Each structure stands twice: as structure tokens, then as C-alpha cells.
Simulated assay, not measured.
Amino acid sequence: MRVLVIGDVVGSPGRKTLEEYLKKVGERYDFIVVNGENSAAGFGITAKIAEEFFEKKVDVITSGNHIWDKKEIYTYLENSDRLLRPVNYPEGVPGKGYTVVKSRKGVNVGVVSIQGRVFMPPIDCPFQVLGKVVEEMKKTCKIIIVDFHAEATSEKIALGKHFDGKISLLYGTHTHVQTADEKILLEGTGYISDVGMTGSDNGIIGMDNESVIPKFINCLPQRFEIAKGLERLNGIDVEIDEETGECTRIDRINLSLSQIEIM
């Protein structure tokens, strides 16, 4: 089964770039997962944007710490099986952290959105929570895909090694910077520390230079604005064996909008 994973979509430049890519090659994939927590002007996601993603054949939207930025999404989260918030938030918060969705081949695919704790809010332990979730999901599917929204590379590698052979794919999001360590771990789990960002490469992790740099100089709060121009799409193209759930191929995607337009 061929799976497409797209890194954090940032604002309208990211949505536009994703749309162009899916128009060109979306039909190649049996299953598509997109991290959409920054898709609404860089902070959060709206119900309208989520529905637009699903209309473009995105199967599941994962997220992270910014899922809560738009209060209107709380009700939508409660009623959606395909927009996920991190599973290791405490009990009682809106929404679901994992789901099982059929691929275009009719195969059950489990998707988990989970968040790290190093340099992040101190929520429930991702190692312990993911262990319980995987045990439950194994009852209905062999393919399990995990979006680990975390800051520290060491924490991402540790979670990947800990669940090697127990899940099909673990990839990192959150830093907006694509790493070059894509691999298949020893027991058959696909891994990359960060899939990167889909949005403008003309700023600082998707935000306009002039709104970000003063914060580093003055240490005062700033209102960040979305960067524009030099749009780029980051993600991974993955093959997973439907019988065993093992990853058999993982390739990085790193394309400019101009490259996509001439595909």
C-alpha cells in the first residue's frame, strides 16, 4: 500500500501547495495523512479547512499543540473520526487521538496523533499511552501510522526504537524542518525524525522574517504573520506491506511549488 504523509501545512501558502501536489499525483496514493495544526493562518485549523482537506481526498488530519488555537474546532473535534488531536492529552479534552480508516484498497489503516514532552507541555507519557493504543488498534488493523509531534530528536528516535516492529511507520512533526534520516528500523518500522513543513520557504518556519526576528532580539511578544513566496512541500512517500504491516520503502519529498507545477 502506498501512503503519502505531508508535514505541517502552514497557512494559505501551504494549503495552496498541497492542493497543487494532490491535483498532480494524489491518485497515486492509497492513503493520505496530513498534519494540519498550522493550516489556519499558521495557528490551528478550522472546520472549513478540515472539510477542504477531506474533499481533496486526505484521509486523516493529525495535529499537535496548536490544535486548540481556534476554539471553534472543539465541537468539530468531538464529532470527527478523521481530525485527530494528540492522544496523550488528559481525559476529558475534546476529540479523539487515534482512528481506523479504510484505505482506497479497503484495508484498515490505524492512525495515531501523539505529542512529546521534552520542551513541550507536560502531558501524559507518550510511551505508555502509545503502548496501550497500539495494543487496542492491533485488534482491527495490521497497519498503524504514528505522527509524533515533538521537539527533541532524541525523544523521537527513542519512541521509534521502542515501537520498532509494533507499528508500520513513525514520523516526527512540529519543528517544520525536514530531517535526512529516513530509514526502515531493524524490525520493519519506517522512521524519520521530522517530515518537515509545507508552506512558504521565504520566512522562518513558515512565518514572515520581520515578525519573527524581533522576538529573538528583544524577547518581547510578537504577532507572527504568514510568510509568502518560495512555497515548498515536504513529506514522505511510503510503501507498507498490507499482510505484515511492515514498511518496505520510505522516501522523502522535498519539492518547490514551481517543480510541482511542471510535473
Score class of each variant (00 low, 15 high):
99 T>K: 13
76 Y>R: 01
83 L>K: 02
131 G>W: 01
109 V>T: 04
33 V>K: 06
79 N>I: 02
134 V>H: 03
109 V>W: 05
72 E>N: 14
104 R>F: 08
132 K>Y: 04
85 R>E: 07
110 G>L: 06
121 P>Y: 09
102 K>T: 08
67 I>G: 08
38 N>K: 05
32 I>L: 05
100 V>D: 10
71 K>N: 12
75 T>R: 14
145 I>P: 04
36 G>F: 08
134 V>Q: 02
65 N>T: 15
66 H>D: 12
32 I>N: 05
82 R>S: 06
83 L>E: 03
67 I>L: 14
75 T>D: 14
28 R>T: 09
61 I>R: 10
84 L>H: 09
75 T>S: 14
120 M>Q: 12
133 V>S: 04
129 V>M: 07
139 K>T: 07
71 K>C: 00
71 K>F: 08
135 E>W: 03
112 V>D: 01
118 V>L: 13
31 F>R: 03
136 E>H: 01
48 K>S: 13
40 A>I: 08
124 D>Y: 12
57 K>R: 15
74 Y>G: 02
149 H>V: 04
114 I>H: 03
146 V>D: 01
26 G>C: 07
115 Q>N: 05
103 S>Q: 07
109 V>M: 10
135 E>A: 09
110 G>I: 06
49 I>W: 12
42 G>I: 12
115 Q>E: 13
100 V>A: 10
114 I>V: 13
109 V>P: 07
31 F>E: 05
87 V>H: 08
106 G>V: 02
84 L>A: 06
136 E>V: 02
125 C>M: 00
112 V>M: 00
81 D>R: 09
51 E>R: 15
37 E>Y: 09
59 D>Q: 06
33 V>Q: 05
91 E>V: 10
98 Y>T: 09
124 D>M: 12
81 D>M: 02
136 E>Y: 00
125 C>H: 03
126 P>H: 03
62 T>E: 08
79 N>T: 11
151 E>G: 04
144 I>Y: 01
30 D>V: 02
138 K>F: 06
118 V>P: 02
144 I>D: 02
39 S>K: 11
81 D>N: 15
113 S>G: 04
58 V>N: 11
124 D>Q: 11
128 Q>H: 11
150 A>V: 00
98 Y>W: 15
81 D>Y: 05
116 G>N: 03
29 Y>W: 07
108 N>K: 06
121 P>G: 05
122 P>G: 05
84 L>T: 07
37 E>C: 07
118 V>M: 11
110 G>K: 09
145 I>F: 05
129 V>E: 09
103 S>N: 09
134 V>S: 05
79 N>L: 11
120 M>Y: 07
42 G>T: 14
103 S>C: 11
144 I>P: 01
45 I>R: 10
109 V>E: 04
102 K>R: 15
80 S>E: 02
134 V>W: 04
29 Y>A: 05
107 V>M: 03
117 R>F: 00
135 E>I: 00
38 N>T: 04
142 K>M: 07
83 L>V: 14
128 Q>P: 00
115 Q>V: 12
89 Y>V: 13
73 I>V: 15
53 F>G: 08
105 K>M: 08
125 C>G: 00
66 H>V: 14
130 L>R: 06
28 R>H: 13
81 D>Q: 09
52 E>V: 09
